[in-house]
Design a protein around this nucleic acid. Sequence first.
RNA 1: GUGAGCGUAGCUCAAUUGGUGGAGCACUGGGUUGUGGUCCCAGCGGUUGGGGGUUCGAGUCCCCUCGCUCACCCCA
Length: 420
Amino acid sequence: MNLRAARGTRDVLPPEVDRWQRVESVARRTFALYGMQEIRTPIFEDSKVFEKGTGEQSEIVQKEMYRFTDLGGHDLTLRPEGTPPVVRAYLEHRLAEGKDVTKLYYIGPMFRYERPQKGRYRQFHQIGAEAFGSEDPAVDAEVIEMAMYWLQELGVESPTLYINSVGDKDDRPSYMEKLVAAQREHLAELSEDSKKRHEINPLRVFDSKNPRDQAVIEKLPTIIDHLSGGNRDHLDRVCAYLSDWGVEFQLEPRLVRGLDYYRRTVFEITSSALGAQDALLGGGRYDGLVQQMGGKVDAPAVGFASGLERIVLAMPDELPVPSVDCFVVTIDESVRAAGLDVMWRLRHSGIRTTADYQGRSLKAQMRAANRSTAPTVVIIGPDEVASGTFTIKRMSDGQQVSSEIDSLAEDIRTLLASEG
RNA sequence: GUGAGCGUAGCUCAAUUGGUGGAGCACUGGGUUGUGGUCCCAGCGGUUGGGGGUUCGAGUCCCCUCGCUCACCCCA
């Protein structure tokens, strides 16, 4: 086998693709209930979009981007995440005008150069949602509740929702001083990775899975205990709304997110069905990002992104559904044209129809019909063509009925409907 | 980027201490007239991921390389 899908990419083949389509269609239907509209942004952007948006110091921009120069000398990047492009489009097209909140969602591939792993690919797919223009905790809660409702509609098994607040300019600087000081006391006990985190982004020490670090992490001050009055109140109200709406969650003081732009509310939904990459969905509030990306005034915003590969992994198995309703078989070459005519008629009557095109024996065609899982077969031979009456066979029980050419579609529908 | 495990037919897996690479499933044809699934018979199918080395002889041992998987890391 010579040609293969590139490392970290994969093909989604027919049995599985049904699940993907379901995730997407349920998302569209659910998000619409919250007044969300779809936005489609380009797969690649000027690299500055991510340098300014994701953050020049972030791991993603530093080492994970598919970044290239095109033939015209432009510095471009395959999008590693969805939020910066949406913010760019929000500003470029002045989507805020005339609106209180602007609610957008996106679906599509993202690209990060990482070592592939269970639930982690170099081309992966996200569904994300963003609400711009309000800092009302009701909007935070609404976005979170929408995500949970969506996963519930998909039947995702026991998702766990974690919530925290990472503060903002009012309380973050003073907290960071305390955190850095506390980390410095235990620096020798920290892993090499965490020492680096301590230098670059001290908050992310909380993310370490290293057992050695855990002991230190236990002793570090948490930001939730150092929130300003306003930010504490904001978090409490988010939680209160969620409780009102029956959403179960856990307050996780050590939850921090990898992206630097989060302010105040952060959240994550995990599934035990996943393994090490257990985050199905993550997000939070990112007040300040709009201005950082060039907005004349800031628009507060909150949103999330979810990993489709991971959601599909966490969904329960389903029985495959037939992809066609009817399979047309022809006895011999003399009735081939009649078979094609019947197929054309059925399709234009809304019956999903296919056939075996190799001119094989009747037995072989029936085998193909059986394999196709088509619930019905129309059998066409010289007798049928002469009389204009065709035989419909129901595969589940072998029952056969005769049908005139003009009532074929209807009779097939009747047979399908009467099937348990 | 770091570490570990694994690469044999389309799929799941066998192959004594190095000694002629097999099975099940799938696929194709047949089991007498124009009918699938179960059953029976037959058939197709592999440079054992690739390259080099050791050996009379390598799927098996050694080295390199590519890929897959899992974890670290990163994060959806």
